[in-house]
Simulated assay, not measured.
Amino acid sequence: MRISITSATTVGESRGGGSVDRSAIAVGEALTAGGIDVDDVDLLINTGIHRDDNIVEPAIAALIQKKSDINPLYEGQAQPALSFDLMNGPCGFLDAMEVTSAIFRTGGRRLAVIVGGEGHPSGSAREDSTFPYLTSAAAVVVAPATDKTGFGRVYRARTTAPDLPVGYLPLTTMGAQGCRVIGFERPDEQAYDRGLDVAVEAVTACLEREGLDPARCVLLASEPRPGFAKSVASAVGVDRVVTPDAPADPHSAALPFAYQAWLHADTPRGDAAHALFLGADGYFVAACAAYRLP
């Protein structure tokens, strides 16, 4: 089942006291922008990775659902909202689209919110120069498409990751401050080249298997490092590229940020027939789906 975006919004670091608060604000503003009541939401999926206090349980989606006041009761309602976490970095947004489409096909749920974003576990990344992601949140409301517009199949590519963590909890050294720290290590330079090849592979598969003309596509892509998206676009023959309008990488919220940047551009559509959503970490994995425009 094809699904279409109803509304979307992004929220920066200055709003909300932590990642859950920011995500709830993003959800509320996305629903307001779409003229949607919280009681109409059937499904909420959280794709964010880094969260307040390194919380593991309960699911962050449940906390966002509670703060957003989205159908929290299991009695007195026609259908309580389902919420869960689905974490796969910048590819998580497209994973959530695919899962949402499958759930919609069951016929029981018709409106979903996909929310993502990053936040330092301490509540502020300003004192941690190693935190590489934008402190932010984004929410996208989606519903079944009423025509042939919307998201199609998700195409994926990956390479074998070395035995090296990119983000991790330093369990042996964190001591009593474990809920406030996070560690990062970057892969070697060769991983950059592999990451570009993987992204090109995913976009190429999408173009070829969907029979799309690159000249009539716009690439909406995450930007794990400067120039990444343009390099991918050049390799596949797409002339128009939109990346997140942000001072750092929004990571799990990168595609909603790119989508918002595209909507706010002077000429977002042009003669484009499809928007190619590309989520990529720049090292090991990438996912791409074509969004057929009205």
Rank of each mutant, 00 (worst) to 15 (best):
G150H: 01
A78S: 14
L134F: 11
K66R: 13
A275R: 00
R156Q: 07
Y291S: 07
D52S: 11
L171M: 13
E118H: 04
E57S: 13
G35Q: 02
D52L: 13
D245P: 07
F228E: 05
V38T: 14
I49G: 08
D128K: 03
G175W: 03
G227H: 00
F93E: 04
A30C: 04
L220V: 04
L44E: 11
V27A: 03
M1G: 12
Y155W: 09
A102S: 14
G28H: 05
N71G: 00
V38M: 06
A112R: 07
A62I: 12
A81S: 14
V41E: 08
K66S: 12
T6N: 07
L196W: 00
Y192W: 11
I70S: 00
D163K: 13
G195N: 03
R22T: 05
G35C: 08
M87E: 08
R180M: 10
G175R: 05
C179S: 15
T100Y: 14
D95T: 00
D128M: 12
G35M: 01
F257Y: 15
F151H: 01
F184W: 12
E210Y: 01
G12I: 09
L196Y: 00
G211L: 10
Y74D: 03
P58Y: 09
H264G: 06
T149I: 00
N88M: 08
E127Y: 14
A273L: 13
H50G: 01
I114S: 01
R269W: 13
T146N: 11
R216C: 10
P214W: 08
V200Q: 02
S231Q: 15
G12R: 12
V236R: 07
D39Y: 02
P90T: 11
V99P: 01
R216T: 12
A235Q: 09
A112Q: 06
Y155T: 03
V166S: 10
G34I: 05
L82M: 15
E57M: 14
L44Y: 10
L73Q: 13
I182T: 03
T243L: 03
F257W: 15
I5A: 06
A233W: 08
D197S: 12
L207T: 00
G167A: 15
A273T: 14
C179V: 08
T106V: 04
A145R: 00
M1I: 08
Y192C: 06
M1N: 05
G123N: 02
A248E: 14
N71R: 15
F257K: 04
A254G: 09
I3P: 00
L276K: 07
V41D: 08
G107Q: 05
A191G: 04
A125C: 06
F93A: 01
C206D: 02
P256D: 05
I49V: 13
A289V: 08
L94V: 06
G116L: 07
Y291F: 11
A176G: 08
T173F: 03
H264A: 13
I60R: 02
L276A: 11
G28W: 08
S234Y: 02
E29T: 11
P224H: 07
L219D: 07
D42N: 13
P170D: 15
I36L: 13
S101K: 06
